[in-house]
Design a protein around this nucleic acid. Structure first.
Lengths: 205, 205
DNA sequence: AATCGATTGTGTCAAATTGTACAAAATCTG
DNA sequence: CAGATTTTGTACAATTTGACACAATCGATT
């Protein structure tokens, strides 16, 4: 059942469904339909039913889906039915923002360390932790068994940092630096460079 | 020629090509091939050729593409052969980071104002500008003719802010808040919630 | 218990996207 | 300058993705 390969594009939509479901749950709703969920997230009801049905029969005809049940299932599928430790590389403004970001709570993630190679930043207090020296990064990541990193270093340093992260055992990278990085197939990278995101919209203006 | 409808998915790849080309140009290269560019961005050479050929015959057989020429064309296609003014809504950590972000320079964008509804933040200096009161947002956006906004407010305020932005004439929104917002068809929204981005990767761990 | 309205899960088809292959054109080499 | 090499642009095939339709099922109602 879980044997068939699920397309990336479906996996990418699940967090969006989850976010909407959590919003409904917070508002006190108990059940929803593919129709209603679709209106929330701007995706057709049929698409949502088909996406969800890849993982099992979670709905009930005539009634729809139990919101809490579906939330639990999605969290399990996405492996966020636990807390993942995350490190931030680069203690610039964006690194700071991510290090105190309180939106990770209840969404499956916890920042556990932030690194920078600038000696003036090392030791600086950011929220609950101190900026650590990049020189110690590999050791720390290995000893903490962290698998996820967010990169906010300048473009010129991103590949070098990425190589060190991969070597230290990082498997997922959220890259805010405006540059493509090369990684082995076993490592997943998502790009989130603000300027590139804006450039995707100007065509339509 | 520009009459045919270009799929969103192609438009979305163009900024990635552009970023790689600018990187090559900075490194002093004059020409490149679909092969080489593909290796940089992790996309097949055929795909790149097909994407680019949607807009004209920009390459030369045997030689490839003139990097500077292709950069100019892509900037023109994406309408970033000019500087777009952008506003930031929400002066939290992420808003701060975006307001001083220097990665917009040379990429087609310039932050011109930042707003918050918290009276304690209004008036605070951030880089070159002061945080302005949200109450004045609509007026300011209209008078500046800004078309692009980045939202960094809490999820609970995002829809209300979005409605005001749309009403003030904003046509592109980069939304960092962890919530889907509803907008008219004439407005484009991109989502960039950090937690959702991380949730897209944990499945593969 | 029979009927009715709502809603799922899925089979089928259509559309969109990507991959493959190759002729044509440009450059390079000796 | 002839032949080898490189590389584009595109026709065609394959694959992936999305839309549509509907039987099956559930709960509510009479």
């Amino acid at each position: 059942m879980n044997a068939k390969k699920i397309p990336d594009i479906i996996i990418g939509r699940l967090p969006v469904y989850l976010r909407a479901l959590q919003h409904m749950a917070d508002a006190g709703s108990k059940t929803t339909s593919s129709q209603e969920l679709g209106e929330h997230v701007g995706i057709s009801a049929a698409q949502i039913r088909k996406d969800i049905s890849q993982f099992g029969e979670f709905g009930k005809q005539g009634t729809g889906y139990s919101i809490q049940f579906l939330i639990d299932k999605l969290r399990e599928i996405l492996k966020i039915d636990r807390i993942w430790d995350v490190v931030v590389i680069g203690a610039g403004d964006l690194g700071h923002a991510l290090a105190h970001y309180n939106g990770f709570q209840n969404r499956g993630f916890r920042v556990v360390a932030i690194f920078d190679n600038d000696k003036n930043k090392v030791g600086q207090q950011i929220g609950d932790f101190k900026v650590e020296d990049s020189a110690t990064m590999s050791e720390r990541i290995k000893s903490l068994s962290v698998k996820i990193a967010m990169i906010t270093v300048p473009a010129s340093a991103a590949q070098e940092v990425t190589d060190k992260l991969v070597q230290a055992g990082i498997k997922s990278i959220l890259n805010y630096a405006p540059v493509n990085v090369t990684v082995p197939n076993s490592v997943k990278v998502q790009y989130s460079d603000p300027a590139t995101n804006l450039q995707r919209m100007t065509y339509y203006l």
